[in-house]
Simulated assay, not measured.
Amino acid sequence: MIRIQGIVKAAQIARSQLQAGVPPSRLLSFQGFIKETLGKIDEICANANMSPAQLPTPSRKAYEFLAQIDLSNLPVGSHNSPSVSVQPIRLKNIRNQQRQVLAAIASTVANPQNSHSQKQQLLKSLQETVATIEGICTQQNATPAQLNKTSRQTYAWMKFLTDESNLERHLSATRRTQKRAEEMLWTQMQHPCKTIAVEFTNMTHLYKGKIGPLEAIAQINEAFVNATDEILYALVRLAFLGKNQEDSQVIKEYALSEEYSEVVLELDFIADTEAENPQGKCYNLDRLFHTLNREYFGGKMLKPRLSWNRSFTTRKFGHYERGRDRVVLSISLDSDRVPEYVVEFVLYHELLHKQHEGKWVNGRLNVHTREFRQDEQKFCKYKEADQWLTRLASE
């Protein structure tokens, strides 16, 4: 039995869109999304010599839901329909749920001999909690995007950890940082505190630290989960010993890196559950994808979900979410002053992330491998597009 990521999420997106009604401008893209999702599942199953009926129950039910959608008779909504003001949803016990997850993470890190079984229990608990939150939103005819800031941040963090690879990276970073904190405070400094806690979570700050006679706590932004030991150790020193120029500079530089931005953007996008719309004001991502697929991928790449990000970004213009097979481009590119080849290049760059999986080197995920860079430079106007984006980022 194989597990195909993204099927349940695709069914959730389709269900939400059907409940709201598909706007006329999105009918074709919605039909294409359903057809391509089903085609992708059928292809994967065929290559594994199995049928979709043999998929795990959640995936099988999601596939059956998608397959029964009557694409010729979709419920039609409208962008012009009067909008209903939705008050931000506050989840009363969200902080308590977060503390329970952090306690389970600490227990898993502290007991490496039972880490596999504990990790699976933690994963199941996260999935159930996330499903409960999404159910609460559905009952109120809303999506997680309507949660208030605190609830939305915590939901996005827990949803992020339901991806097993993300959870594994989180546990690894926590384990390494916890060990370093204990060595520094207990062994090197002989500090009398009885407990030391290191927590990675979705937060506004880069890090926070508090050290007292009985307890020392360091909270670190989740976006540092891909960082090297050098970066993590600098965070420990800053959190517990206070600021120093050398470590602060190291952390600031990493916070401007692509590795950091990738996680920040993924967390930001998780709560944005609105159906994707590839049609921008000036550029249609579906059309650009088909051009790039034909010219650079031999027409063999399965189209990912494509959408424009509603927020402007100044340092990063695109992002590929492997878990949801989605490419998101910044609407700062959707302008008549931006040449089409520049938008094509950013989309091409993100499609290469779909084609090339990253490689772990010395505990760090390298997403821009030598093979990636070689393929990136095959873009016909690589230098011109790169220079254009450099100028745009500096504005």
Rank of each mutant, 00 (worst) to 15 (best):
K210F: 01
T313S: 14
R152P: 10
L55S: 06
A156C: 11
A227G: 15
F240M: 04
R152M: 12
D286T: 14
I13Q: 02
E222C: 12
E371W: 05
A110G: 11
L292C: 08
H319L: 10
A275M: 11
D336M: 00
L66Y: 10
N221P: 09
Q121K: 00
V328E: 12
F33A: 03
S172L: 03
P278M: 01
A53D: 03
G6R: 10
L365A: 05
I44L: 14
F33T: 00
T57L: 12
C282G: 05
W388G: 00
E199W: 09
G135V: 08
F269T: 05
G212K: 08
S248D: 06
M203P: 01
N114L: 11
T195Q: 14
A142L: 10
C137L: 11
K281L: 11
A216R: 09
K149N: 10
C45S: 13
N166R: 03
N49R: 04
L351A: 10
P278H: 08
W186I: 05
F312C: 07
A14S: 04
K9L: 00
V346H: 05
I251W: 06
G318M: 06
A218C: 08
N362F: 07
T132L: 11
R237S: 14
K300D: 15
G280H: 04
L126K: 06
H290D: 15
K252Y: 08
S78M: 06
R294I: 05
V86I: 15
